[in-house]
């Protein structure tokens, strides 16, 4: 009987190892190891075998059963691996076909530039304040030391809206609104759209400004220079240099015009006028109700378009407001 088992086992093993498909193996498994399989049939003769032979034969039968089961699993795995490989070989895509692109959402370059400036200054402790674009003449002019008969009013080509109301010509009124609403210390950035009747390649009737105001008990011109020097390096690179020249803005005294020079950034490596600044004029503190003997401060104003135009070498300011995708898609 052992011989019978061995020959059945050998034959089945060969069958399994030469099986060409998972289905064929399954059939072999049923025909050999199944309830009615050939192995079971052989074992049915076990009843006629003597009691001392029985365990021996049983153990041989179990060994064959285990061997055949392992062989089936092995052959199955080999066949499945082969099938997968064949499928993978079959599945192909032309990777040179064009990809399906999402749209590129982009911030407006003026928003991006504003954020650049704001982010740099936030590190120093500045917060952002907002104010209306249609502003009272009082806050736009009188409150910041530009009285009605002041020649400096002509520096501002003002759009008039309602009696006593103008489109703000700078964001300075936001400085005043801030000072009126809180005691010092004040560290505030006033960013937003401003308006002047002026239109050419470098002037737009609406443009954007960021003004900074710092009020505390000890504030000096060198502090202003330090802050602006840092800001200009943040914007134009670590080798950016700063130059202050005396100038005049009624809301500061002394007032300075600030030039920047940075290697390679501008043609000719010359000085470029970039912003106006100065120490806050006591008249503003008076208007805000601050103690002019104690409050000291500096203020500066920078044109966002000017910075963006320099950074991106944009030659015509009008591009900013036309939403031409040939322009907007570049930022």
């Amino acid at each position: 009987m052992i011989d019978q088992l061995d020959s059945l086992g050998e034959a089945s093993l060969k069958q399994i190892q030469s099986a060409g498909s998972v289905d064929a193996i399954e059939q072999i498994r049923v025909s050999v190891l199944g309830k009615k399989g050939s192995l079971s049939q052989v074992l049915r003769g076990l009843a006629q075998v003597s009691a001392e032979e029985r365990p021996k034969i049983g153990s041989v039968a179990n060994q064959w059963k285990a061997r055949l089961e392992t062989a089936i699993e092995e052959q199955k795995a080999t066949l499945e691996a082969g099938q997968l490989e064949a499928r993978i070989k079959n599945e192909k895509i032309d990777v040179t076909a064009p990809g399906l692109l999402p749209h590129q959402g982009r911030l407006h370059p003026l928003t991006a530039t504003t954020r650049k400036i704001v982010k740099a200054l936030e590190r120093l402790g500045f917060d952002t304040a907002l104010g209306p674009e249609a502003e009272t003449e009082i806050l736009n002019f009188d409150a910041i030391n530009i009285s009605a008969d002041h020649p400096a009013r002509d520096m501002h080509d003002t759009f008039f809206v309602n009696p006593g109301v103008v489109l703000r010509t700078h964001t300075s009124p936001v400085q005043m609104r801030t000072m009126q609403s809180q005691p010092w210390p004040v560290r505030v950035l006033c960013a937003g759209a401003v308006y002047r009747c002026d239109h050419d390649a470098t002037h737009s009737p609406m443009f954007h400004q960021i003004e900074g105001l710092w009020v505390d008990q000890k504030v000096s011109m060198s502090d202003l220079k330090g802050v602006l020097s840092y800001l200009l390096k943040e914007l134009f690179g670590p080798d950016a240099e700063i130059r202050m020249r005396p100038s005049y803005f009624p809301f500061v005294e002394p007032g300075v015009e600030v030039d920047v020079r940075a290697k390679g950034l501008f043609k000719g490596d010359g000085w470029i006028e970039i912003l106006g600044a100065g120490l806050v004029h006591p008249e503003l503190f008076k208007f805000a109700g601050y103690d002019i003997k104690k409050a000291q401060g500096f203020a500066f104003g920078i044109g966002v378009e000017r910075v963006a135009m320099l950074l991106h070498k944009i030659s015509d300011i009008r591009h900013f407001y036309q939403s031409d995708s040939r322009f907007l898609s570049q930022f």
Partner: peptide, 14 residues
């Protein structure tokens, strides 16, 4: 103005 050094104002409160 070029003689004026650079410094930073003191942050006295936040």
């Amino acid at each position: 103005y070029e003689k004026i050094p650079t410094s930073l104002p003191a942050l006295t409160s936040i």
